[in-house]
Design a protein around this nucleic acid. Sequence first.
DNA 1: AATTTGGACAACCGCAATAAC
DNA 2: GGTTATTGCGGTTGTCCAAAT
Length: 320
Amino acid sequence: MDGHRCCTKGNVKRGLWSPEEDEKLFTYITTYGHGKWSSVPKYAGLHRCGKSCRLRWINYLRPDLKRGSFTSEEKQIIIDVHRILGNKWAQIAKHLPGRTDNEVKNFWNSCIKKKLISQGLDPSIHNLVPSHQRAYNEVAYKCNVPPNDELSNSVFTLNSQITNAYTLEMGTPIFTVPDNQPPLLQNPNPVWNQSLTDFTSFPRVSSIESTPNISSSSSSSSSSSLVNPSGFGLLNHENCVWGDSTFAPFEAPILEGERPMRQEVLQEREKVSEMGTNMVIQNMDASFDSSSFDLRFVESTLVSDFMHHDFISMDDFAWN
DNA sequence: AATTTGGACAACCGCAATAAC
DNA sequence: GGTTATTGCGGTTGTCCAAAT
C-alpha cells in the first residue's frame, strides 16, 4: 500500500469521480486555492484523500486544460522531446501547454509507442530494429513481455553508422569533449537552460512559426549562438562543446510547411538523409516490407536522432 | 443480440524529493 | 540534524465503451 497518511485517516472514497465531487472540488479550489492538498478534502467536503484531489484537479478540472485529441504538431513535439528526455512525462508535458503528464503518457503508450513499433522503431531509443527483433518486439508488446535486450544490443545501428560516416566526411568530430572540461550537461548557459524549461520561450521545432534564422537568433548571451544538435535551445561558442565553426548545426525534424531552412542546413540534411537512406537499404533485412513503411514518420524520428546519439546521454542533462 | 476484444482514458500505487517541524 | 508530512512523478491497473465476432 501507498504510504500517504491522508488516505489512512478515516474512510476515503476511491474510484471514478462523480460530477458532484468534481463540482465541490472545483468550487473550493477556484474560491480558496488548494493550499495544502491534504486539507482540501476536509474543507471541500469530500471523502477523498488529498492526493486524489490533487490528481483530479491537475488532470481533469484545471481550467487551463486543453481537451481533445493531440494535434500532429503536439505529437511531433512529444516524439522530439521524448527522444531526448525519455519517459520524463512531466518535462515533456511542460512543452505542451494545456496538456498533462498523464495525458502525454497515455497518448504515448496507446498511440505513439505502437506506431513506432509498427514502423520498426524501438520506442525507447527511437532506433531502427531489424525485422526479426521487430517481430519479436511486436509480439512481446502484445503479450506484455519485456523486449529482448540481447537482441537490442545487436541492433542494426543506423545512428552510429551515420554519425561515423558523417564524422569522416566532415573531418571534424561532431562533438569534441575536452578531457579537462566539465561535461556538457553541466553547461551553465542560462539560455540553454531557460529554453528547455520554459515552454513559453521554447523554440517549437515542429512549429510553423519557428524562428526563421536559427543561427542568428536573437540570443542575448552571444551573437554566435548555435542551435544545439537536438534543435532545442541555443548554445554559446564560449561554453559549448559543439561550437565548431566547421560544423553546421543540426536541426530537429521538421514538418511540412515549416520555415525555410538555411542553404547549408538544407545541404547537410540532404547529405545525411541520403546516407541514411543508403544505409537503410543496405542494412535492412531482405524481409523488410517497405510498402508499410512510413518514411516521413521514420525520418522524423531518426534524422535528428543520430544528432544526439553520440552526444552524452541526454538524460544526464540537468534540464532543471 | 450477446459476448469478446481492444483502445482510450482515468485513477491508483509506490517511490523519491522536498518542506516543515 | 533527524523525523515526519507533503508533494511530484512515473509506472501500472482499472473502467468504460465501441467495434468486431
